[in-house]
Computed example of a mutant assay.
Amino acid sequence: FANVGKMISLAKGAVRKVNDVQLSRYACYLIAMNGDSRKQAISLAQTYFAIKTRQQELSEDFEHLTENQKRLAIRSDLTEHNKSLVEAAQHAGVKTPMDYAIFQNKGYQGLYGGLGAKEIHERKGLKKSQKILDHMGSTELAANLFRATQTDEKLRRENIKSKKLANQTHYKVGAKVRQTIKDLGGTMPEDLPTPEKSIKQIEREQKKQLEKPDK
């Protein structure tokens, strides 16, 4: 709980420094876990931390996980690594939402043999609101995780500062991952089956399980 100051705006353009408190991640956890669960914000936070703790436990014992548990663990990792990829892409010149959509599409096209996000979405038979990554099995998710992490590292390592080069890099990394799958005799990502349950469905089931009273 670090004491900090911040500037607030007053009338006629004036500003004044006021005391504030900056919370660490652990401080946020302590407040949530010791708060009144009857309050919606506290209840949601407690559920969030319970699910994240369980996902961490699963990721540490990966080889013994079920397929759905593997999907949850990899999807969680991919969410975090995509944040880093966004940051690396921004440093490379990918600035607007449209820029990033094009950049992300290039990675898919490399990995999926020319298929972009729209084509993958249609191939999986998804609704407009449904996310592609939430409807992948663990093998397909793992391929996309490798694509994301390697693109992130390459953009940073080579200090790429061009939007065009960033797009080319994402495509080439995706294509390299695809070639590796082919060399190993694996199934191409677009030919892998789409799971019956989405990640969101599995998370809802997990949440209900956590909310069940102990017997």
Rank of each mutant, 00 (worst) to 15 (best):
Q40W: 08
Q40K: 13
A41M: 12
A41K: 10
I42F: 11
I42Q: 06
I42G: 06
L44C: 07
A45G: 08
A45S: 14
Q46L: 04
Q46P: 01
Q46H: 03
Y48F: 13
F49T: 07
A50K: 11
A50G: 02
I51W: 10
K52Q: 15
K52P: 06
T53N: 15
T53A: 13
R54N: 10
R54Y: 07
R54V: 04
Q55S: 10
Q55P: 00
Q55H: 12
Q56V: 14
Q56H: 14
Q56W: 12
E57K: 13
E57I: 09
L58K: 12
L58V: 06
L58P: 02
L58C: 09
S59L: 11
E60F: 08
E60N: 10
E60I: 05
D61Q: 15
D61L: 10
F62D: 10
E63I: 09
H64P: 02
H64G: 15
H64F: 11
L65T: 04
L65R: 12
T66M: 06
T66C: 05
E67P: 09
E67K: 12
E67N: 11
N68E: 15
N68T: 06
Q69F: 04
K70V: 02
R71F: 00
L72D: 02
L72K: 01
A73R: 00
A73I: 04
A73M: 05
A73Q: 03
I74Y: 06
R75H: 13
S76D: 14
S76P: 03
S76I: 03
D77K: 06
D77I: 04
L78M: 11
L78P: 02
L78S: 03
T79Q: 03
E80A: 14
H81L: 07
H81I: 07
N82Y: 08
N82K: 12
N82I: 05
K83L: 14
S84C: 02
S84W: 04
L85N: 08
L85C: 05
L85E: 04
L85G: 00
L85D: 10
V86D: 07
V86W: 09
V86F: 09
E87H: 08
E87I: 01
E87V: 02
A88L: 02
A88R: 03
A88N: 00
A88P: 00
A88W: 01
A89V: 07
A89N: 06
A89R: 02
A89P: 00
A92Q: 00
A92P: 02
G93P: 04
G93A: 05
G93F: 07
G93M: 05
G93K: 06
